[in-house]
Structures are given as C-alpha cells and as structure tokens.
Amino acid sequence: MSYAESILVIEDDERIREIVVSALRDVARVVRGVATASDALASIRAEPPGLVVLDLGLPDADGGDTCRRIRELSGAPIVVLSARHQEAEKVALLNAGADDYVAKPFSLPEFVARVLAQLRRANMYGSGRPERLALGDLVIDLDRRTAARAGEPIRLTPVEWNLLRVLAAQPGRTFTHQQLFHAAWGKTYGDAQQHLRVHITHLRRKIERNPADPELIVTEPGVGYRCEAPPTGGHVSDP
C-alpha cells in the first residue's frame, strides 16, 4: 500500500541514502534518491514529488538555502535529516519551510512514522479544509470552535483554542515557538511570547489523558511543539 506517488530523498552519504530509500519503498510508489542539491532541484522541477527527505550535510549547498529553494518550487512536506543537533539550526530550518526534523542517528521505525504523519497531513489537505478534527478520542469542531473528549465538552480559553486549532490542523508538523506564537496571537506582544509554554501546559492539562506523559501535543526540546496523534476515522491507516 502506498501513501504517495513519489518521494525524493536528498542524501549525499550513499549507504544512508540506500537504507532510507528502501525503508520508504512501502510508503510511496516511486522513491528517488539524489546526492546533491542541484540534482534535487532539477528532479523537483522535472517531476514534483509528494514529499522530500532532505539531509543537511550536502556538499554543494547550505541546508537552509536548499530548504528555501525547494519550498519555492514545491509545497510538498519536507522532512529534514541532520547529524548536527543544534536547536538554533532546527528552528532556522523549520522557519525556512521544513515541516519536521529527524536527528541522526535515527530509529528507522520512528523516521518512517514521521514521514507517514506528513503524508497523512498532505492527503488531509488534498480533500479541502475539514470541519472536524479527531485526535484519538478528542474531537475538535473547527466551525463551532469547540473541543470534546469522549463526548465531554472541554472549556478552553481563546489562546488555548487557537493553539489547539493550529497544532491539530497540521499533525506531524513541528511548529517553532515563534510560528506558534504568530499563529495563536497574530502579532508579537513582547513578553507574552514567554508564556506560550505556560498556555501549552494549561492546554495539556485539559486535553491530555496524562499531562506528565503527553501524547497529543509533543515537545520538541528547544524548538517548539508538534501535534502527534493520528486522526482517527480518516481514509489512511498505518500499515
């Protein structure tokens, strides 16, 4: 079963490229592998992929620039692989248009799960803006601006609602603190940005089964937050 027509893997290390390409064979009908940024851009122009896996240590171009140039050509989700674990770098890449970031050395099942989450989201968008989002037994009604868990309504403040709406609309996408802040507040209120984490904590205490072990809103340390639960009742399921 394949979730995407094609995936492009940009990775200069041949051995890692091979293993990534073969791990994604079950996910997409065609998986292409290239070693340089220039080959990648040519490939994207010739045949737009449904998802891009981008390694950051490319020999011919800076990772952030490559990310931006791919974003100019394609709206496909970009999952970044990197062996340098600098939080500032992750933030810069996500702000440059990447959707998620996986640190090397990675666990293969986790990597595939992150790719699948991106494809699910892309498919979700393909069928237009949904009225309702389901995260496990949490149901979010976007039109009525309400959330309920197992039929039980949850009272959210406007800021909490905005955060939940933004995160849940794009499950699998890692939002930087800054992106979430702009999405939830609209503009910069100086110090208020510091309280993003406090609002997320309040939101978790309302929607998570166990706030000490959150499953719906996951922290990406030093980077931001990601909604991780798979939407139930959708048209795709895990293999």
């Binding site: 890692i16 090397k104 050395p105």
Partner: peptide, 10 residues
C-alpha cells in the same frame, strides 16, 4: 553520527 546512522539503520 553519520556512520552510526548507517550502522543502526542497517
């Protein structure tokens, strides 16, 4: 990390 990635993935 690069060779470790390769080893653990294989």
């Amino acid at each position: 990390r690069t060779p470790l990635t390769s080893i653990s993935a294989h």
